[in-house]
């Protein structure tokens, strides 16, 4: 793959987000930096509680604040810092330049409002359309996301839609104003497998047509491989590894990524390979460890791992990792995933 010359659309630096709860400060995201290019699809993976949703929701302040609080960081979007924006400025960005799709289509649509009206709202607000124009556009959007007889469906309520159709409806809402960035937070987790594939295909298709950038959050590596060009692997509120799909799937460097890859069923492997879950439990975010959050579960952990978080190490131009194993003085560890595949 050649050098990627596309412009950077979103550039996040040193983002930390905490929740102030009665029990103390939950440090959900702890100083992460990443970027998304124009028209690019970035995947974020990591197990439950690793801070994926908090990371993206904090960008357009969809978290309840308080308790949530952005402690540090900047998020340059089209040359402006989202973190510093006023509520009014953010309102003009939400839904028009950055849109979101959520995990559960059964609960993310308003049950007492017609699906059509829910699509029209954003159009009326951002594109100053009349009701009639917005209605036309909403029908067009429903058709675009593959809902049959949209003229009829537009006047139906969410409960008259199936789960997959509701998620299509959500996509129609999200894409109605032609946003520059679409954030999809586990958009297919709540759907059954065949519907999952359809929704992913639809997203890929629309991304190409509309040249939207995508951030796709999931804990399903298969989904990432299918849709994304680049991947961020998160754990305990921190980025562990970052790289292109090939980097992360074929040359993974971080023991946590190895663990994730081993726990994925492989369709291309005829041998009845057993899925190996990662042992142990995620770190306590009230008092996150000084060192690498994965150290407690890492079978290669060294004393230094528990004391200090490793710096970013570049493996290649596209690929970087946060792991002490990269240090010159660390022992040479053979990557077990590659090993397994060799056979």
């Amino acid at each position: 793959m050649g050098k990627d010359n596309r412009k950077i659309l979103l550039d996040v630096k040193d983002l930390s987000v905490s929740f102030d709860t009665y029990a103390g400060e939950v440090q959900a995201v702890r100083g992460n930096s990443f970027y998304v290019r124009k028209g690019e699809a970035l995947g974020i993976v990591g197990e439950s509680g690793s801070g994926k949703s908090v990371t993206v929701k904090s960008l357009i302040k969809l978290l309840p604040m308080p308790p949530a609080r952005i402690k540090t960081g900047t998020a340059m979007f089209n040359g402006k810092d989202l973190v510093k924006m006023s509520d009014k400025q953010l309102e003009s960005i939400r839904g028009s330049e950055i849109s979101m799709i959520f995990q559960d289509p059964m609960t993310s649509l308003n049950p007492t409002m017609k699906v059509g009206s829910q699509i029209m709202e954003g159009l009326i607000k951002h594109q100053k359309m009349s009701k009639k124009e917005a209605r036309e556009k909403a029908i067009e959007m429903l058709r675009l996301v593959g809902i049959p007889t949209p003229e009829k469906r537009i006047d139906q309520y969410p409960h008259e839609f199936s789960g997959g159709m509701r998620q299509r409806g959500m996509i129609a809402i999200a894409l109605a104003c032609n946003p520059k960035l679409l954030v999809a937070d586990e958009p297919t987790t709540a759907l059954d497998v065949t519907i999952q594939a359809q929704i992913l295909d639809l997203m890929k298709d629309l991304q190409e047509k509309m040249e939207t950038s995508i951030i796709l959050i999931t804990h399903d590596l298969g989904v990432i491989a299918d849709v994304a060009e680049r991947v961020i692997v998160m754990y305990g509120g921190l980025i562990m590894e970052e790289g292109s799909i090939d980097d992360v799937f074929y040359r993974p460097q971080h023991p946590y990524t190895w663990g994730l890859l081993k726990s994925v069923p492989r369709l291309d492997n005829k041998a009845k390979e057993r899925l190996i879950p990662i042992e142990g439990t995620p770190p306590d975010l009230f008092s996150p460890p000084e060192g690498c959050p994965f150290a407690a579960r890492c079978e290669y952990a060294m004393p230094i791992c528990k004391e200090q978080m490793p710096e970013r190490t570049s493996v290649s131009e596209t690929h970087s990792v946060f792991c002490w194993l990269q240090h010159d003085m660390a022992p040479n560890v053979v990557n077990p995933v590659i090993e397994g595949r060799g056979k």
């Binding site: 939400r94 839904g95 993310s108 649509l109 049950p111």
Partner: peptide, 11 residues
């Protein structure tokens, strides 16, 4: 959730 959706539309 749907209130978050509504907010995410820029209302």
């Amino acid at each position: 959730d749907y209130v978050v959706t509504a907010k995410s539309k820029g209302l």
